[in-house]
C-alpha cells in the first residue's frame, strides 16, 4: 500500500467531526460546568453517561417510548449529581474525587450484575432500542459530506442531531456562566470561604453545578446509546472520564466552547497519528523491529499523552483559556 497523507487527513477529519467527537464534546461541556467553572473534581462523570444511556435503553426495552427513556435518563443523572454533591457538605474537595469515581464504578458493576440482569441484560447489554430515532432520519440513503470526508445517511443524521445538541448545551452554559450565577461559580472555584463570607450558599451552587453537569453528561450518554443502538457495561469504564478531562483541559477549562474545540482536536490528533503510523508501517517507512501494525493503536495513545503533557507545560490554560489568569498564582 502506498503512503497517502491525504487519506490520513480525510480519516482524521471524519473522526474529528464524527460521533466520537460529538460524544466527547457533550461529555466535556457537562464536565466543564463542574470542573472548569466550579472547580469540582468529579471523577465519576461517566456515571452520568451510564445512567443516561441505560435509562433510555431500559425504558424502551420495557415498552416505553424513546422520549420517555431520554427524560428518565436525564432525570436519573440529575439525581446522581445531587447524590455526588452530598459529601461536599462536610468533606474537602479531594474526597469528592474518590467518592465519585467509586460511585461510577458501583453503577457499572451493578449493570453487569446478575441481580439486575432482567433489566440490564448483564454483560451483553441492550441493543436495537433506537429504531424510532432512525425512522425520523430525513436523509435518503446515500453518502454525504464535503469532498472525500463523507458519512452514510444514518451516521450523518446522528452527527447532525449530535452537533445541534452540543450547540444547545454550549449556549446554555454560556448564558449561565456570563450571568452573575457564573460569577459565583468562579468565586467558589477559587475560594469558597470568600464566597460564603459574602452570603453565597456555596453548597447550593455546588449541587446546581453537579446537577447541570450531570444532565449534560446524561445527554452525552443518551446520544451514545441511541447512535450506536447499544449499551453495555464495558462502554462506561473510568477511563472515559479521564479522556473527557483531557478534552476539557485541551480546549481550556472554564471556556464555554473549550470542550468542543478540545474534542475536535483530540479526535483529529488521535486518528491522524494512527492513520499516519499505520500507513508508514505498511509502506515500510518504519521498520518492523521498531513498530508493528498491531502496536500502532497503543503507540498513538503514548504520542497523544506526550502531546498533552507538552500542552500542559507550555500552554497550561488550554487552547481557549486566558494566559493572564493562569499566570496568577492563587496561593
Amino acid at each position: 500500500m502506498d503512503f497517502d497523507i491525504v487519506r490520513s487527513f480525510v480519516d482524521a477529519m471524519r473522526s474529528a467531526f464524527g460521533t466520537s467527537a460529538v460524544l466527547f464534546a457533550l461529555a466535556g461541556v457537562g464536565l466543564n460546568v463542574m470542573f472548569g467553572y466550579t472547580g469540582l473534581l468529579n471523577f465519576g462523570h461517566v456515571g452520568s453517561l451510564l445512567v443516561g444511556g441505560y435509562g433510555t435503553a431500559i425504558t424502551v426495552n420495557l415498552g416505553g417510548p424513546l422520549w420517555l427513556g431520554i427524560l428518565i435518563g436525564i432525570t436519573a443523572a440529575v439525581l446522581l449529581g445531587l447524590l455526588y454533591g452530598l459529601p461536599t457538605v462536610r468533606l474537602r474537595e479531594d474526597y469528592l474525587a474518590i467518592v465519585t469515581i467509586a460511585a461510577a464504578e458501583i453503577l457499572r458493576l451493578l449493570t453487569r450484575s446478575s441481580a439486575l440482569e432482567p433489566l440490564t441484560q448483564g454483560v451483553f447489554g441492550i441493543q436495537k432500542f433506537a429504531d424510532n430515532f432512525y425512522d425520523l432520519n430525513p436523509f435518503p440513503r446515500g453518502s454525504y459530506g464535503v469532498w472525500r470526508i463523507t458519512w452514510d445517511a444514518n451516521t450523518l443524521w446522528a452527527i447532525v442531531v449530535g452537533w445541534l445538541l452540543v450547540a444547545l448545551c454550549v449556549w446554555l452554559v454560556w448564558m449561565l456562566t456570563r450571568a452573575p450565577w457564573g460569577r459565583v461559580l468562579k468565586a467558589i472555584r477559587e475560594d469558597e470561604d470568600a464566597a460564603r463570607s459574602l452570603g453565597k450558599n456555596v453548597f447550593g451552587y455546588k449541587l446546581q453545578s453537579l446537577a447541570i453537569g450531570g444532565a449534560i453528561g446524561a445527554l452525552a450518554g443518551v446520544f451514545f446509546a441511541v447512535q450506536s443502538q447499544s449499551v453495555n457495561p464495558d462502554s462506561f469504564q473510568p477511563i472515559f472520564t479521564f479522556l473527557a478531562y483531557a478534552v476539557v483541559i485541551l480546549g481550556g477549562p472554564g471556556r464555554a466552547l473549550g470542550p468542543v474545540v478540545g474534542s475536535i482536536l483530540f479526535w483529529f490528533l488521535l486518528s491522524f497519528t494512527e492513520a499516519v503510523l499505520r500507513q508508514a508501517v505498511s509502506a515500510g517507512f518504519i521498520p518492523d523491529w521498531l513498530l508493528t501494525a498491531q502496536e500502532v493503536a497503543a503507540v498513538r495513545w503514548i504520542l497523544v499523552g506526550l502531546g498533552l503533557m507538552l500542552l500542559i507545560t507550555f500552554r497550561p490554560q488550554g487552547l481557549l483559556g486566558s494566559r493572564e489568569e493562569t499566570l496568577i498564582d492563587a496561593r
Binding site: P180, K186, E190, D191, A194, G199, K200, A330
Partner: peptide, 20 residues
C-alpha cells in the same frame, strides 16, 4: 479572588441580584 477582576470581586458582594 485573584482570577476575578477587581470589579467582579465587588459585584460578588452585592445582594439581591436575581441573576445569581
Amino acid at each position: 479572588l485573584m482570577k476575578l477582576t477587581v470589579m467582579d470581586n465587588m459585584k460578588l458582594g452585592a445582594t439581591g441580584q436575581s441573576g445569581e
